[in-house]
Design a protein around this nucleic acid. Structure first.
Length: 215
DNA sequence: GCCAAGATCCTCT
DNA sequence: GAGGATCTTGGCT
């Protein structure tokens, strides 16, 4: 069995039986939430098809952090970060890509967790199709489908129209329990692509997982 | 209205 | 591993 067919065989994964994450889970302190999100399943229903993937890489952004969009206060573009925990915050980066975040903390506090890497579980072919449509490159390796924040958004067809989606109530996109990782399986390190606050250890990823953007 | 920066991705070497 | 592409957004005048 090839690696590709292993992934295709997961297309029938019964995600419906997994318990959905509640507001209690999202109201964890931001860095704790970033760590706890590893191993959770993100599910997206689109046109009768289901996409799902296990979160394997995250970064925490809080209001006291100069690298965070919320550092300079509330703006039109970042207002979603100041919502209650459990909302989806989507923003445009470098004019052409999107990044998806899960809002944390209470209303009025600008904090969120960026999803940087996801391991495809269900709907791999559709993810690949979505990536090819939005990418310049037409030859993508398996790991290149979701091993980066904007790659994940493209694969799951997440754009700014989903900014402000309530992940606790929405039927089209939500998170469920899936897998637990021991502390020894989780790597905590510095974030990628940030300049101010770059020394902070606020990036979390699953050791050895190939869908992590940078080991 | 203009300008510079940016939580990225992709190609080339 | 390094550098270019590309365009939205916010800050400033």
């Amino acid at each position: 069995m090839t690696k590709n067919s292993e992934i295709e065989s997961l297309e029938i994964f019964p995600h419906q039986n997994l318990s959905r994450l509640s507001s209690d889970f999202y109201s964890n302190e931001t860095e704790t939430l970033a760590k706890k999100l590893l191993g959770k399943l993100i599910v997206k229903n689109v046109d009768g098809q289901t996409l799902s993937g296990m979160i394997v890489e995250t970064e925490a952004y809080t209001q006291d952090d100069p690298a965070s969009h919320s550092f300079k206060g509330i703006r039109n573009s970042n207002s979603m970060m100041f919502q209650n925990a459990g909302y989806l915050y989507v923003y445009t980066i470098y004019g052409r890509y999107f990044c998806g975040n899960i809002v944390s903390e209470s209303e009025g506090v600008g904090a969120a967790v960026l999803i940087r890497g996801v391991e495809p579980i269900q709907g791999f072919s559709l993810m690949k199709e979505n990536r090819i449509i939005t990418s310049i490159s037409k030859q993508l390796k398996e790991k290149d489908i979701t091993n980066g924040p904007s790659k994940f958004c493209a694969a799951f067809n997440i754009d700014k129209s989903l900014n402000g989606t309530n992940l606790i109530e929405s039927e089209s996109i939500y998170l469920t329990q899936f897998k637990e990782f021991a502390d020894s399986e989780i790597v905590i390190t510095t974030r990628i692509g940030v300049h101010q606050g770059s020394e902070k250890l606020r990036r979390y990823y699953v050791r050895g997982n190939k869908f992590v953007s940078k080991q």
